[in-house]
């Protein structure tokens, strides 16, 4: 019975996620369009609501091309490996007080551990395509994701220290107890999280692995059709997961005035993160590889460590 419930829940989350990704893409295109004094998609359906659906259908109908020189097995496996972990992490996310899949007491650790597997997909995709641009893109991607994994984890540690638990539900409940979202005591951690999350997601201004104007889309240059769709799906799923994670950690998850149900608050807060990412993409130029690395190692990591020290001091002295 438990198993059935779990499978059902996973299917529901998957379906919700597909819808979520569909409209996240539309949301992105609308936001960026408006910032660029354009209208964004508006041809399919009212307000362009079916634009992404049309795009996906087009991708699914395309010929499935595997380059002759590609390493076939890895090439096929890569999109799946990119998508699977970004979906798996949704198991520990708690959408509202009652709506969740697993009440895992190492939720934070699980999330961070599993999500870092996404980079395998990137590496495999870039390597197996047998394309020089893809190779460069994937190597850049892996270097970047490995480097930014560290400040990401360290920034989350502050929250873990304050709340004393790694359970994501526990963290939200703790915020409820002290009557304050962690964004206030953990503002530095929040900023570090935000920056390293962008790098983790390969989003602009840190979109080096897929730098359109340099590497011709980087690691997924050779992908087309539904495999490409899978990569895109993985990217946006991961974006949603990261913003959901941030909502849980820093913005008090489903907490909010009672006139709206918890899940609505949760999604609204996630939208803020998504908006910030799209806003960044519309504004900033791309950073350079060496600057990015230097920034990660020389600025973010020391700051994150400092944040941990300060948090620990506060925790012990103030007795939170």
């Amino acid at each position: 019975m438990d198993l059935l419930y779990m499978v059902l829940f996973a299917v529901v989350v998957l379906l919700g996620l597909l819808g979520g990704v569909t409209y996240a893409i539309l949301f992105e295109r609308k936001v960026i369009g408006w910032m660029q004094i354009r209208n964004g998609p508006n041809r399919h359906g009212p307000w362009g609501l079916f634009q992404t659906i049309a795009d996906v259908l087009k991708l699914l109908m395309k010929e499935d091309i595997i380059p002759a020189a590609a390493d076939r097995k890895i090439f096929v496996l890569a999109p799946i490996l990119a998508f699977a972990p970004s979906f798996t992490v949704f198991a520990v996310l708690s959408w509202s007080d009652t709506l969740y899949a697993a009440d895992l007491n190492i939720g934070v650790l699980y999330f961070l551990g599993v999500s870092s597997m996404t980079m395998l997909g990137v590496l495999m995709g870039g390597w197996s395509s047998n394309n020089k641009y893809s190779l460069l893109g994937s190597i850049r991607g892996v270097a970047q994701m490995v480097s930014y994994e560290i400040p990401l984890v360290l920034s989350v540690l502050g929250v873990v220290i304050l709340s004393g638990t790694m359970n994501l539900r526990g963290i939200v409940q703790y915020q409820d107890d002290i009557g304050m979202w962690f964004i206030i005591p953990q503002f530095l951690g929040f900023v570090i999280y935000l920056i390293s999350a962008i790098a983790e997601l390969n989003r602009s201004p840190f979109d080096l692995p897929e730098a359109e104007s340099e590497l011709v889309s980087g690691y997924h240059t050779e992908y087309s059709g539904f495999r490409y769709a899978f990569f895109m799906l993985a990217e946006y799923t991961y974006a949603i997961a990261i913003s959901a994670f941030a909502t849980t950690l820093f913005l008090g998850g489903w907490l909010g005035p009672a006139f709206l149900p918890g899940i609505v608050w949760f999604i609204l807060k996630m939208c803020i993160f998504m908006f910030i990412w799209f806003w960044l993409r519309a504004t900033l130029p791309r950073a350079r590889v060496d600057h990015l690395m230097q920034f990660g190692w020389k600025v973010l990591i020391p700051l994150a460590l400092l944040n941990i020290v300060i948090t620990a001091v506060i925790k012990v002295w103030m007795g939170w």
Partner: peptide, 13 residues
């Protein structure tokens, strides 16, 4: 040029 550098909006402005 800004598009090359990776910023999208300047192109449209």
């Amino acid at each position: 040029y800004l598009l090359d550098i990776g910023a999208l909006s300047p192109f449209l402005y």
